[in-house]
Amino acid sequence: MPTLKLKDGVLTVSADRPETEITLEAWRAGARPEGGRFALVLPNDVDVAEAAEALARVDAVILHFPVFKDGRAYSQARLLRERYGYRGEIRARGEVLRDQVLFMARAGFDAFEAAEKDAPGFAEALSEFSVVYQSAADGALPAWRRRAAARAAAA
């Protein structure tokens, strides 16, 4: 499955070679990435705290959407970004659809496993909303901050 990557608001089909994937079990058993690029694969029912130690050593974390309705990975992604300060790639795997991709990006995902032909639809979905109400992992300013800025500018 190709990966669509989001960087500085632009979505492109990645030409990168796939990383070597390691599971949390393998990490716990002592497997350590050496040379090349590595991705840690986390199921959506694990506490991401258990992966905290591994984060500094991997280039990507892969989170799962077994079905689009199962939204646990949204919380996992935010925790990785906001609590554990993870700056590497967070990639969505599984049922990754156009109509959820904006929520994913806001939660901290910046890579999506999807067909190449999905790219235009995904890009459109990512730009459908220009205002958000709440702060999340994407750094978008919530409406209340923009209101405050507008007031300050007017004063």
Partner: peptide, 13 residues
């Protein structure tokens, strides 16, 4: 209402 509208983390509970 505003906080919960299109909350990215809590739209697929």
């Amino acid at each position: 209402r505003q906080w919960s509208t299109f909350h990215p983390e809590f739209s697929y509970l």
